[in-house]
Design a protein around this nucleic acid. Structure first.
Length: 848
RNA sequence: GGGCGGGUAGCUCAGUUGGUGAGAGCGCUGCCCUUACAAGGCAGAGGUCAGAGGUUCAAGUCCUCUCCCGCCCACCA
């Protein structure tokens, strides 16, 4: 074994070893024949346009931990991987590629374009999958699914038709979010709002047959061309006598037509409605039903015409008259200029407000009316909430429930048609739209298993056990999978949902390309090893909160991997015949006692998805218990072969416990140390042994404390020498058993404490370091000891003890406490008081 | 406006159903190349647990209010 963990070659070798031995493949038969229990996870399918980023790292590491754990627990595990066709994103990529040849998709036509997308997919679509393999993840790659695979495609179309038959899908004219750049509608969840510094324009609309004006405020002045009325609050005294009067739109001396091509009256009316806020702006609101969500509702309420003044490419149409053909933002400038020249602008104020942007390209989204297909999500509200309320689906962390309920309470129907070419085409004559990508991914948990066919896979693995995903797609994806599964399978898609946070940078900012704060996972693997990165990441991932990424922790992970490597190396260099648990000494029992505790905790924590806790427990036990104390201690053993063999027993358990977190290094060391040709993946995950070594554990704990005291004194006085340092134990002040224990285990104390001799004494040794423990008084005889500073140390300690003493004393003399506190607590306090009292007594004696 | 998280050591965070000398890692300081590991070992310093009030024998932990920080949803034209 080399001196440091040489991960680069090992990772590739081990991954190939796993693949060659088909260790990731799920065997459906084992479940159907009741040989094994099933455990199934669906991988959230990455986009085919994607490259691995920190989010994938976190998401897949967690899944891999669960998968490897349950495999070792004896389950038949299916981790179903796949990729998503990512309609808009992929179409954008291929369009950009076309543009390099100066072509638009319209130039080559739909069929040819789709062909191009497939070509692109064959070439680049699996890059992310290959990158994910570097992470060591153990998905069943032989079952890789793609949302545009023939069978999956058919499943999507089938689902659409069934929902349509059930009356849950309908087509209608609604105000939708429109991205003029992607030239498609967007679901509400696909719109991200950003705050901008804009302007608020105050427009003057002349009142007919009077010299008056009504002033309205707007952030989108160009939409005035689609205005069909102005609304005021009925209680607004300023406008009371204007209600019902007519206004003329400035500059508009052309005929406008509504959506159905009927001419619209030139003059618009002032109407009254309670919804208008008297205190905002001027108290008068322009109503543009075709271009604003709220106005659309008002329009429906009052049966107002819908005047569309924009084309779907973002240019103004006939209704804009002289402004026809202008791009929407140029139009705004032109219109403001024209209005201003003609005295129709009262004022312009700076104004901060938010606008919706396309989550794919960042273009400002235009609210606009359009005919679209919708899915009645509201129909599912009750049942979707019920399955979570009744814990048929458990959401981790718990508070995720509240967010989920809140979303359902406010849910609106889902616009599922998209005006793009790449996707599942809506199955109707003359229909050119495709379905929202999320419509197809909503079927993921069962369509990947062959639905609507009644397959063995469905029988064996559905419903799945747990879904691991980020908070950001709770609504996009998780909610929709739940209702689709309830509708088609009459069953929840998964028993549990584990939601992890987003990875942010040290300052808590989102990772983004423009900020340049997102590290490349592959670079991290190069620098810190995959296992180091996985472990480092899990050490900083709190449950249910965003992760603040710190490269420092990747270093911690790498150092930890190296530590494990070197423990292995030590055992390898001292290797002995493996006959575990013979000739157990105190240190063996001490570590075995704790091993049991750790095994118990790790099993519990992984099952409860406490991945961060698990990582910390493993780290602490392995480094600070096993390496720092146990390995150091067994170096003093005369019967080394037994000691090493017992150490191997513990270390074998440690390797298995670590395997889900650090698959590569554990496999490599396991095969070297235990000369195995098969994989550690096939071993059983450790279960508690029920050792009964509590008393020995406590005895060793005493020795440990004694050694720490010795080290502290030596540290303070900078003593390095060993042989000339003697420990004197005062026989009157020390418990007989502890004295015996110390003498019996002199090999340990002398090596780890660095002393040369242990002797009994009945007096107090002058000018020495003082070790005052419970029922134990020792002196560390040192040359060149400055007893003055030792005295100061002791006085400081004495003061602290006295303070403590008086507070406990007070508590114990409080009748309420004695009456109401449980006897166990009172007893505990009494014992504590006694031991402090003894320590104080000893310290005082010495200081005299 | 509605909802959700968080405020504990210089930094990042643990802290079980309240049980009583508040923990870790990193960073910092000092000493050590002790034959597994300097990607290491040993030791040390460092905290009015955001603030106020309350419940309780007992509060970092439970309740109320306040102040900060972050996120999500809906957005006032």
């Amino acid at each position: 074994m080399e001196k440091t963990y040489n991960y680069k070659q090992i990772e590739e070798k081990i991954y190939n070893f796993w693949l060659e031995n088909e260790l990731f493949k799920a065997n459906t038969k084992n479940v159907l024949e009741n040989k094994k229990q099933a455990f199934c996870i669906m991988m959230p399918p990455p986009n085919i346009t994607g490259r691995i980023h920190m989010g994938h790292l976190l998401n897949n590491t967690i899944q891999d931990i669960l998968v490897r754990y349950y495999k070792m627990k004896g389950y038949e595990v299916l981790w179903q991987p796949g990729t998503d066709h990512a309609g808009i994103a992929t179409q954008n990529v291929v369009e950009r590629q076309l543009l390099r040849d100066g072509k638009k998709r319209q130039d080559i036509g739909r069929d040819e374009f789709i062909k191009k997308v497939w070509e692109w997919k064959e070439e680049y679509g699996n890059i992310i999958i290959n990158q994910l393999k570097r992470l060591g993840i153990s998905a069943d790659w032989s079952r890789l699914k793609f949302t545009m695979d023939k069978d999956y495609y058919d499943a999507v179309i089938y689902a659409f038709k069934e929902l349509y038959k059930a009356g849950l899908i309908y087509k209608g004219l609604y105000i939708i979010n429109w991205c003029p750049r992607c030239y498609t509608t967007l679901a509400n969840e696909e719109v991200e709002s950003i705050e901008i510094e804009g302007k608020l324009y105050y427009l003057k609309y002349p009142v007919i047959d009077s010299g008056e004006y009504v002033v309205v405020a707007t952030t989108r002045p160009e939409t005035y061309l689609g205005d069909v009325c102005v609304a005021v609050n009925p209680n607004d005294v300023r406008y009371k006598n204007l209600i019902g009067k007519k206004l003329r739109l400035p500059l508009v001396n052309w005929k406008r037509k509504d959506y159905y091509n009927n001419e619209v009256l030139e003059d618009i009316e002032i109407i009254a409605d309670e919804f208008v806020d008297i205190n905002f702006g001027t108290g008068a609101v322009k109503i543009t039903p075709a271009h604003d969500k709220d106005d659309f509702e008002i329009g429906k309420k009052y049966n107002l015409p819908m005047v569309l003044m924009m084309n779907y490419d973002g240019t103004l149409n006939e209704n804009a008259g002289i402004f026809k053909g202008l791009e929407r933002f140029n139009a705004r400038e032109e219109i403001v200029k024209k209005l201003s020249e003609n005295g129709y602008i009262e004022k312009i104020e700076n104004y901060k407000y938010s606008v919706g942007t396309c989550y794919r390209c960042g273009t400002i989204v235009e609210p606009i009316i359009s005919e679209q297909w919708f899915l009645k999500l509201s129909y599912f509200r009750d049942i979707a909430k019920r399955v979570v309320e009744e814990n048929k689906i458990e959401i981790i962390p718990e508070y995720g429930k509240k967010i989920y309920f809140n979303w359902w309470d406010n849910v609106r129907d889902w616009a599922i048609s998209r005006q793009i070419w790449w996707g599942h085409k809506i199955p109707f004559e003359n229909e050119n739209d495709v379905l929202d990508t999320w419509f197809s991914s909503a079927l993921w948990p069962f369509a990947t298993l062959g639905w609507p066919q009644q397959t063995d896979e469905l029988k064996a693995f559905f419903p799945t056990n747990i879904l691991v995903t980020g908070w950001d797609i709770l609504f996009f994806w998780v909610s929709r999978m739940i209702v689709m599964s309830l509708f088609f399978m009459k069953e929840v898609p998964f028993r549990r949902v584990y939601l992890h946070g987003l990875i942010r940078d040290e300052k808590g900012r989102k990772m983004s390309k423009s900020l340049g704060n997102s590290p490349e996972p592959l670079d991290l693997f190069e620098k810190y090893s995959v296992d180091g990165v996985r472990m480092g990441l899990m050490l900083i991932t709190p449950e249910g909160q965003d992760v603040k990424f710190s490269e420092k922790y990747m270093e911690v992970g790498r150092n930890y991997a190296n530590k494990i490597w070197n423990i292995g190396r030590f055992l390898y260099l001292n290797r002995a015949e493996y006959r575990p648990l013979e000739k157990l000494e105190i240190e063996d029992k001490w570590i075995l006692h704790q091993l049991d505790e750790v095994i118990y905790k790790i099993n519990k924590n992984i099952q409860e998805c406490e991945f961060n806790n698990t990582a910390k427990i493993l780290y602490d036990f392995t480094w600070h218990k096993f390496a720092d104390w146990y390995i150091e201690t067994i170096k003093t053993r005369y019967d080394k072969e037994y000691a090493i063999s017992n150490a191997l027993f513990v270390f074998e358990n440690i390797l298995k416990l670590h395997h889900p977190y650090m698959p590569f290094i554990t496999e490599e060391i396991y095969q070297i140390l235990f000369k195995k040709k098969s994989s550690i993946m096939l071993e059983n995950f450790p279960e508690i042994y029920n050792f009964e070594f509590k008393r020995d554990f406590e005895k060793f704990e005493f020795l440990k404390r004694l050694i720490e005291e010795i080290r502290e004194i030596k540290g303070i006085f900078k003593i390095q020498s060993r042989k000339d340092v003697k420990l004197y134990v005062n026989v009157q002040e020390s418990d007989e058993e502890l004295l015996k224990l110390s003498k019996e285990n002199f090999r340990i104390i002398s090596y780890l404490g660095g002393i040369g001799d242990i002797q009994e004494t009945s007096e107090k040794i002058k000018n020495s370091g003082v070790i005052a423990l419970d029922k134990f008084l020792g002196f560390l005889a040192l040359d060149n000891l400055n007893f003055q500073s030792e005295k100061e140390r002791l006085i400081k300690e004495l003061r602290e003890l006295e303070n403590l003493y008086s507070s406990i004393k007070q508590r114990l003399s409080d009748s309420d406490f004695l009456e109401k506190a449980p006897s166990k607590i009172i007893e505990n306090q009494r014992e504590k008081l006694l031991s402090i009292e003894e320590k104080i007594k000893r310290l005082k004696k010495i200081l005299q």
